[in-house]
Design a protein around this nucleic acid. Structure first.
Lengths: 154, 154
DNA sequence: TATTGTTATACTCTATAACTATA
DNA sequence: TATAGTTATAGAGTATAACAATA
């Protein structure tokens, strides 16, 4: 590369953290998440498209407006995303029998498979990394998982 | 510990993990990273722009081509990103005295401040979350930080 | 000739505004 | 009138191809 890079940890550290490892935790989580996101089953769909499919997989069918709100995008934007995914065969629209304005957006089998395969690849990458840790490091990580889940739910 | 979320955890779980908490770790890291990314000092700059600035902050000045490679975008794309950030006053181009083709792209004081303030906000959010943990949860997290750093560097 | 930076052009994803159908 | 979905249109961000200046 260009210049040498001695002070990574100190550069990543901000001044006024009350807890000693805050900046290190923040930085490690960001980099690990980025690395995991790179593992995917279909390179032709975007992050936003994958995220919408994953949401449907986890929380079941949604109306367009609901799905847009959950993914924090506008309804027209989600409408386009849904069109693309429907054309690709990953989800379908079903008319709501009780309310003629609403549609139910739900995964197809192919959509479910896509999510499963992508998560499987991410887990495979992470599993391989865990394999190379020694037992005490794995234990430390296992003990921290519930805490990380709690932080993520905040 | 916290409120567990059984339906989510099981839905996020894939079939063939060798280590028991792989899927939970992957999911928690993804959600926590996403939450942290939402904390930023300037809503008018994009993720990619922020990432380029953060890279310059951590690793020092780069040529355009180098910066493009590090951020995994093309040179024309990075050129546009750099134009925007230069116009906003966050970085500057300096001609390389030894090679007339090259430019050195480096942060301005405003660019450095922007990164510092954004990381400070993310750390503040994380610190507040850590404050609400009990001592044993904090200890578990602290023990896992070096392991997470190791995984992130892989 | 090869490399660095840049411009030209096009495609994707996002947004706001406006329209249609239904409640 | 209000709400759900959609269409029209425009603004970022990305890409590939082509060009200028320098090595």
């Amino acid at each position: 590369m260009s210049t040498s890079t001695p002070a990574i940890a100190s550069a990543a550290r901000t001044a006024d953290s009350a807890h000693p490892a805050t900046a290190e935790l923040r930085s490690a989580v960001a980099r690990l998440a980025r690395r995991l996101r790179a593992e995917r089953a279909d390179d032709t769909i975007s992050d936003g498209q994958f995220s919408a499919l994953a949401h449907l997989k986890m929380y079941g069918p949604h109306s367009l407006t609901e799905l847009a709100e959950r993914e924090r995008v506008t309804a027209p934007s989600m409408n386009r995303t849904v069109n693309c995914l429907q054309e690709a065969g990953y989800l379908e629209r079903v008319n709501d029998p009780d309310d003629g304005r609403r549609v139910s957006i739900r995964l197809t089998a192919a959509g479910r498979d896509l999510i499963d395969e992508t998560l499987r690849r991410r887990d495979a990458w992470l599993d391989a990394a865990l394999d190379e840790l020694d037992a005490s490091d794995r234990a430390a990580l296992a003990a921290a998982v519930p805490v990380l889940q709690h932080l993520a739910a905040r």
